[in-house]
Design a protein around this nucleic acid. Sequence first.
RNA 1: GGUCCCAUCGACUAACGGUUAGGUCACCAGCCUUUCACGCUGGCAGUAGGGGUUCGAAUCCCCUUGGGAUCACCA
Length: 487
Amino acid sequence: MSVRVRFAPSPTGYLHVGGLRTALYNYLFARHHNGKCILRIEDTDRTRFVENATENLIKYLSWAGIEFDESLVEGGDYGPYVQSERFDLYREHAQILLESGNAYYAFDTPEEIDAMRQRQQAAGIAPKYDRSVMRNQYTLGDSETKNLIDGGAEFVIRLKVPAMSEVRFSDIIRGEVVVQSKDVDDQILLKSDGFPTYHLANVVDDHLMQITHVIRGEEWLPSTPKHVLLYDFFGWERPQFAHLPLLLNKDKSKLSKRQGSVAVEDYVEKGYFKEAFVNFIALLGWNPTADREIFSMQELIDNFSLEKVNKSGAVFDTTKLDWMNSQYLRILPFSDILEMLKPVLEKHNFVGFDDEYLLKVIDLLKERVIFVYQIPVFAPYMFEEIQEFEIEYMNKHWKENTTEMVKELLQKFIETTDFSHSNLSAITKQYVESLGMKLGNIIHPLRLMITGKSVGAGMFETMEVLGKEKSINRISKFIEMKESGKI
RNA sequence: GGUCCCAUCGACUAACGGUUAGGUCACCAGCCUUUCACGCUGGCAGUAGGGGUUCGAAUCCCCUUGGGAUCACCA
């Protein structure tokens, strides 16, 4: 039987980084086994409906390079892929459970349930639906139950958890898990509005969609016994479960909004490459070899296995992500970087540069920054005239004879027709040597005049990219300013 | 609190009974150098604690401790 997995997010607004990792592992697992990866939208909670949330989810999943074989976009043979379009199915299945005696009607109001919990808490026992005293099919009797329903009373359908037995299941990542059924609550399956809860919808859909492996976050582990019971009651074969370790805040609690960005879109906004982000996320909780850090999507697919997924949670610390981004800045095709650079430059109002020039600038600076957006911040002088000179830098390197030297060197720059960095270097070195001086005596003043800053890429490389005209103009202009005492 | 899950450097992790407990990020130092980076070299730093099992335990078992998740007519 071929592998079929699903990513089943609830459209509550944005794609969570933990959700992205779950989606990614599902995707990697499916691709690794030549199986199918399905996207199913779990929108059974009408009170949490968020406009455009599904579109947003799909947008960022797609940004990350995660493709689905079946979804509301691609279609497929097991649709619809949106739970709100499958309500009849859930009602039918709840009915099956009712008839087989594995589920029952209950009529308690939220207030009554609340009162029950308070009594239990006061008595120091775990809050759990008390089938023997609440208003339900068993305490009311079948005829009264029928009367209530016929009379239009609101009801829910609850799972009838067996009194004394063990629920056990095996998890690919965690091994055998055993829970006593007395600790499992009579979960509501169908809400009073007729909509299913996650538990029912999830099991029905996973079965109907022939999902072979349920790969989801660890937060679902405590409710898995309910799901297992449902599979058994329906007489269905259970899928294999794999509960992924959680992504954590620095304080080790479940990754949350309060302690930093958790929305994938925030990281896109911050300028991370999708390749770096996916690579980073993939290695949080799973590691194929440990002697390697950089993996392309295809390499992740080739190496992926659920057996190597860790059991313990991973702190989502982006320090390493920054390093990865810098690595990708070096290995990614120039054309990709160029496309990211253009909109960034526009924001700075640095316009009118041709691709050829921009490519040279990227090559010049990519090893000195970790984000594309830092290029114009690190080296604005590549895109505009110098706004400000670092005075301290000037004071440190500008001696009495510097102006004279610079003038002579400028003359040589003007005379040369070869403005390559190697030739510029040769000219300059020859000149300082003729004076019996060191390169450092002239290169810092040069850097100051050309860039205004004390830090940057190789000086002659910078001049080459900037070009003869601009380089010479900046030097002449600076000398004028210097001699007229303007600086 | 009940139930369940988890536990190797600060972080991500490797070692699936035998290693001086390895790698990466971060941090520190040195080298390189034209500044800043990159790069290279080296360094700091870990098996939560206690019992077993075994010739031998990070690894298997138990207890303790710690952390987390979950206990909704949310997913």
